[in-house]
């Protein structure tokens, strides 16, 4: 019987890393967005930097999703 433990460990490691990275980046985008809303509400500015930061975060998540779809389609 041939069980590829290395491949199994790799799958586990990659899954863990990608999940944590995507959720962390998405949460940061979420945080940036709420900072912007707070800034706008307080009238202390238009919160442009926060909006840009949120945009970058969500774009990164979208890129991962597109890569995921390309993985399904390429099989």
């Amino acid at each position: 019987m041939n069980i590829k433990w290395a491949a199994l460990a790799e799958t586990a490691g990659v899954s863990l890393f990608v999940t944590l990275a995507v959720v962390a980046v998405f949460a940061l985008g979420n945080l940036a967005l709420s900072r912007r809303e707070a800034a706008v509400a307080a009238g202390t500015g238009r919160g442009v930097p926060a909006l840009v930061a949120a945009g970058v975060c969500f774009a990164a998540c979208a890129a991962v999703v597109l890569y995921g779809i390309s993985l399904i389609a390429a099989k």
Partner: peptide, 10 residues
């Protein structure tokens, strides 16, 4: 882990 992170960050 992701849940912990999500709550921690926000």
């Amino acid at each position: 882990g992701a849940t912990k992170l999500a709550y921690l960050i926000t």
